[in-house]
Write a protein that binds this DNA or RNA. Structure first.
Length: 465
RNA sequence: GGCGACGUAGCCAAGUCUGGUAAGGCAAGGGUCUGCAAAACCCCCAUGCGUGGGUUCAAAUCCCACCGUCGCCUCCA
């Protein structure tokens, strides 16, 4: 079954065809680093990580570029408030975000370009847009003239005349038309500025992505991704800039993830309704957030609530529990009649069919959970490890394709392990002597310390909660 | 006001493009197992897919209208 991707540009699900055989060029808009990242940013990174992992599974060689916007009004404003250098402020947030990506098991992009390191290339592209007549200068500012771009609005499907200019933003009387946008902004006192043919200044918001995609991936790319709040104006303007220069389609597929919502609205720094990645990771492991994301379509909005987090955590636990070993004793003959190899094959098939259909991770997970049930049934029927392991290996591998690590264990000091083993062994002796009260006491006390004891026929097993 | 996305069980959610009679997870209830638990397993859990019309032998899926939630509307999530 061929891979299909929903394309925002055509508003259709389309068969995935690369520009270059076997290779995928993917550019994803990363965060503007003016504050700590929240779980909404993490969601976006996870969504495109899953996409990238699956494309690689399909045999594509993926070149993945994600940028950091480190030169921006908000970065400057924040830095001024704190009395620090804007680029140093941004650097700190970038380092923090990279650590979050590691904790969330997001594969590192092949390249993480930053605006501050691409100024020369940006100036070059702005100059080219002026040369070609798509941009004009006003007192050190450079604006893109939307009227010069005939198919402007094709991504967001809106026309300048449909929009209420200045609805949210104050009009800038220096622009020839309200829909024009800044490519270069003249420097103001107290702001970082770079020399340019138009005087000292800095890039506008959208130009950096056009430049970085072009420089690190080429004139044409396969997939351009980001949050759906970026469709307009950011991605629309990227298209305008790039295609005006190259005369070629910028990206074949435009992919957008839905917004993470909290308390009935999109999580955002300005509203202050955010949960930072740091806060989340202090309470849960990264896979819990990944599980939340995988449970729904990447393009649909996701609501962040305690209940949803809890459900994701439990579901993850169920996947992991399927990896537990056989309970059959050596001399017992297996009463298992389930063909686990066949079930594993079915799960993999459903996984692939679902993922091929616009990365339908909920469908992929559904197949995995059916395999979980089969494995558990077989274990209950007395299957030994040699029967269970191939199916468990498939489950692990499918989970791995989604970026989930089913073997991750709670990072508790191994010092405690020996003592817990000793206590549990001691308790088994008590159980053999039918000293139930004492055995139950130990189990209850361990439970309070976060250790779950599960009794078997002859001995007990334990695990961390 | 404009553009777009979404609305499926108590909760999360697939299925909608390609119409054929509702995946999966969490929770609740009943049961098996167990010294008691836990875990696991079995049963149960939407005659119903925002509302109202229409097309069709057949609609969650197509068409029209309406309601609700969210996102975006060009100095920048």
């Amino acid at each position: 079954m061929p891979l299909k991707i929903y394309n925002t540009l055509t508003r259709k699900k389309e068969e995935f065809k690369t520009l270059e055989k076997g290779k995928v060029r993917m550019y994803v808009c990363g965060p503007t680093v003016y504050d700590r990242a929240h779980v909404g940013h993490a969601m976006s990174s996870i969504v495109f990580d899953v996409m990238r992992r699956y494309l690689e599974y399909c045999g594509f060689q993926v070149r993945h570029v994600m940028n950091y916007t480190d030169v921006d009004d908000k970065v400057i404003r924040r830095a001024n408030e704190l009395g620090v250098d804007p680029l140093e402020l941004a650097e700190g947030y970038i380092e923090e975000y990279e650590q979050h990506l590691k904790d969330l098991r997001v594969l590192p992009a092949d390249k993480n370009p930053r605006v501050s390191k691409e100024i020369e290339n940006i100036i070059e592209m702005v100059a080219a847009l002026i040369d070609k007549g798509f941009a004009y200068t006003v007192e050190g500012d450079v604006y893109f003239s939307v009227a010069k771009d005939k198919d402007y609005g094709k991504l967001s499907r809106r026309k300048p005349e449909d929009m209420q200019a200045g609805f949210r933003v104050e009009l800038n009387e220096r622009k020839q038309a309200p829909e024009d946008f800044a490519l270069w902004k003249a420097g103001k006192p107290g702001e970082p500025a770079w020399d340019s043919p138009w005087g000292p200044g800095r890039p506008g918001w959208h130009i950096e992505c056009s430049v970085m995609a072009k420089r690190h991936l080429g004139d044409e790319i396969d997939i351009h991704g980001g949050g759906n709040d970026l469709i307009f104006p950011h991605h629309e303007n990227e298209i305008a800039q790039t295609e005006s220069i190259t005369g070629k389609p910028f990206a074949t597929y435009w992919a957008h993830n839905g917004m993470l919502q909290i308390g009935g609205e999109a999580m955002s720094k300005s509203v202050g309704n955010m949960v930072t990645v740091e806060e989340f990771l202090a309470e849960h492991e990264g896979d819990v957030l990944r599980m939340m994301v995988l449970n729904g379509s990447y393009s649909a909005p996701l609501t962040f609530t305690g209940e949803v987090v809890d459900q994701a955590e439990k579901a993850l636990g169920r996947l992991r529990a399927a990896l537990r070993p056989s309970r059959a004793s050596q001399d017992e003959t297996s009463g298992n009649t389930i063909d686990l190899l066949e079930r594993a094959q079915v799960a993999r098939q459903q996984f692939e069919n679902s993922m091929d259909d616009d990365f339908n991770s909920p469908g992929a997970l559904a197949g995995m959970f059916e395999l979980v049930r089969s494995i558990n049934q077989a274990r209950d029927a007395g299957a030994d490890d040699s029967e269970l392991q191939p199916a468990q290996a498939t489950l692990k591998s499918l989970a791995g394709l989604l970026g989930l690590d089913l073997e991750a264990t709670a990072q508790v000091s191994s010092d405690a392990t020996d003592f817990i083993n000793m206590l549990v062994a001691l308790r088994d002796e008590l159980r053999n002597e039918n000293l139930w009260q004492l055995a139950d006491l130990i189990r209850d006390q361990l439970s309070e310390k976060g250790v779950v004891v599960e009794d078997g026929q002859s001995s007990s097993t334990w695990r961390f909660k």
